[in-house]
Design a protein around this nucleic acid. Sequence first.
DNA 1: TAGAAAAGCAAACGATTGTTTGGTTATTGA
DNA 2: TCAATAACCAAACAATCGTTTGCTTTTCTA
Lengths: 204, 204
Amino acid sequence: MANSSPTRIQINNRRELVLETAAGFFVRKGFNGTSIRDIAKAAGMLPGSLYYHFPSKEALLVAVFEEGVQRISDAVDNALSACPDDAWARLQIACEAHLATLLQGSDFAHVVVRVVPHDAPGAEQELVILRNAYEARFITLVEALALPPGTDHSLFRLMLIGAMNHAPLWYREGQETPASLARQFITNLRFAQDIGNSDIKEQT
Amino acid sequence: MANSSPTRIQINNRRELVLETAAGFFVRKGFNGTSIRDIAKAAGMLPGSLYYHFPSKEALLVAVFEEGVQRISDAVDNALSACPDDAWARLQIACEAHLATLLQGSDFAHVVVRVVPHDAPGAEQELVILRNAYEARFITLVEALALPPGTDHSLFRLMLIGAMNHAPLWYREGQETPASLARQFITNLRFAQDIGNSDIKEQT
DNA sequence: TAGAAAAGCAAACGATTGTTTGGTTATTGA
DNA sequence: TCAATAACCAAACAATCGTTTGCTTTTCTA
């Protein structure tokens, strides 16, 4: 007997639907702005039914966070696996994957950026650990850079992450692509020159 | 008696206390994570009493936003008024004032960065207008820069604002000052060199 | 000195919150 | 065939939510 027959019952078959629905609400309404009833109704279920899959609203957020961190981590890792060893090129590739997942992927990764862990006090530590585990990639990537002497690599990384995670607030699909954004992000942080600034007195 | 001094009644004498208390909660708990009862209790009043000063919870948020935008605007404008230097110096001074208000000032300015306007749907437009009115300063400041040819000034500005507004999430008082942060922010975006990267072959 | 306005208290309103409980249906392995 | 389990429904729970109403106290003005 095959242990996975075509008529096999789909275990937790609507768990994913609940997760996706929740991610959408958490992104658009925030954690505290979303009610269990919002999610249940949009998923075609009753409020109490969610508690078969998740023991609490905060546990649901953690599950969404886990999926978001998993997806954006996979995207970045996968992009880096087929990338040259040049530190700047690797960072740019990672930024492109980060932005693509954040701006064009599902809502899961967006939740990780949008929802601040302290909004769910009981799950705060878990959420911070998850996000830190992902962002650790950028510690390595930025430390591999040969930055000008005296540059604080940590601050450089925080600037970059801040700039990237701010993108969902202004990004509109159509004009710019994650790839073009990543290229410009890195260019602005790498090639920014003081061309023509040494004796600039005024601009119009 | 110390409290029976005036010949004039103190109009709205506790309105400021309510505003400050609300700002604190909005920063630490978010808008939807804060209840009217939270604010009232911390301000030593009853929940209903807040409605003498503000017609609704969203109107209270708008008032906090207005105060926050006012304070950070004043800080930046005041810093710029004594800085007729070149464009980069002016931008750095503005960043320093922005960061100082955000990280070391009252909670008012922090609310403007922490609370996303859509969390209060009925006040969303008003909140966006307020924030845009402030951020317009950086449009001018960044457009005055002589950036490398082909640089998107708008994206440059969004990077900088994203990096700065991300700071409250990692800043810890003691080591770095707003001034040192602003200097490094600008340095990273201006003087970033490709030192040690001359062996780069190509970028996509 | 009378009275209007400011400021807030006390108490409740209906609605919504996260969650629980017990029952129901469908599918499974034995 | 049958008990077990997955998955969900139906209905309610106490608590909390933003807000309203009516009343009281204080203070300034006319």
